[in-house]
């Protein structure tokens, strides 16, 4: 599933941008696709209505799946008791810490490997070997190393974010157009100036795709990590609910996971639109 995100990312860039480059005209441009957007919501809405009807008719027993109205009521309850906000904060904390750690590590390694030959020889070979391993397979080892506290959870999230950032930033740095670098050199940029004005901005589009990929990966890691003996967090909420056959609470947890993923993705897209405003595909306002 993270793979499809990477493949889809560059294509999604172009059409979304048109609205951003001309904020003044936003209401006018937003009005036209409004009908389309409603149509997009119509079919999920119908599904929810069918689900509700089936639940009320007794076709879906609450043990299998709670009715949407029950889910809504439970959501409200979980918010009111402060349970949901608490677990949400715990999960967010894990993702933020792990993601920051992972992105920092991935970016640092990519800079070392991308900007120096020696760095490449030392860093790239092991990274390329490690990345072929499905990192979630490391869970048992992580439990042995880090126990069952917060550390293995954060480490897993960090690991999930490291590789996408490393691979895309490294590729971006190495993909620098030598003609641009040469021109910059004629016009007096030293090595530092070259890195700052040519290499890093040129690597940014690739790195941002990696960042989105890393988010998806970090999220997935969080879900897996929170199955490891957690005592708090959305994953704990879900596992705990399973013990009591509370399918309504499980659905709440799943929806929260989905919304968090969507929100994070939207955030990166926003960064993308701002940072890559110069890209030809984004310019046709």
């Amino acid at each position: 599933m993270p793979d499809t995100q990477v493949a889809a990312a560059p294509r999604q860039l172009a059409p979304r941008a048109s609205a951003t480059t001309a904020p003044a005209r936003l209401p006018a441009t937003a009005r036209k696709p409004a009908a389309q957007r409603w149509r997009r919501f119509a079919s999920p809405l119908v599904l929810v209505v069918l689900w509700q009807a089936a639940s009320m008719a007794g076709l879906i027993p609450p043990r299998t799946l709670a009715a949407p109205t029950t889910v809504l009521a439970s959501t409200w309850e979980l918010i009111e008791t402060g349970e949901l906000p608490y677990h949400l904060l715990v999960s967010l904390g894990r993702v933020l810490t792990g993601f920051t750690l992972g992105v920092t590590t991935g970016a640092a390694l990519a800079l070392v490997a991308g900007l120096s030959r020696l760095g490449e020889e030392v860093v790239d070979a092991p990274m390329q070997m490690l990345r072929t391993m499905p990192f979630l397979a490391l869970v048992p080892l992580f439990i042995l190393w880090f126990g069952i506290g917060e550390t293995p959870k954060i480490a897993l999230v960090a690991l999930g974010a490291t590789f996408p950032v490393y691979l895309t930033l490294f590729a971006g740095i190495r993909g620098t157009d030598p003609k641009l670098a040469e021109a910059a050199r004629v016009f007096g940029l030293d090595r530092r100036g070259l890195i700052r004005h040519v290499i890093l901005p040129g690597a940014l589009p690739s790195a941002l795709v990696g960042l989105r990929y890393a988010l998806g990966s970090a999220w997935l890691s969080l879900v897996i990590a929170e199955q490891i003996n957690a005592t708090a967090g959305i994953g704990f909420l879900i596992n705990d609910a399973r013990e009591f056959l509370r399918t309504d609470v499980i659905v709440v947890g799943l929806v929260v996971y989905a919304l968090l993923g969507l929100g994070a993705d939207a955030l990166v897209r926003l960064v993308e639109r701002r940072a890559l405003a110069w890209r030809p595909g984004l310019l046709k306002a």
Partner: peptide
């Protein structure tokens, strides 16, 4: 100073 066959402007500036 050099002018190349292609403009070689940095697209992000």
């Amino acid at each position: 100073a050099v002018v190349f066959q292609e403009p070689r402007l940095l697209p992000w500036k």
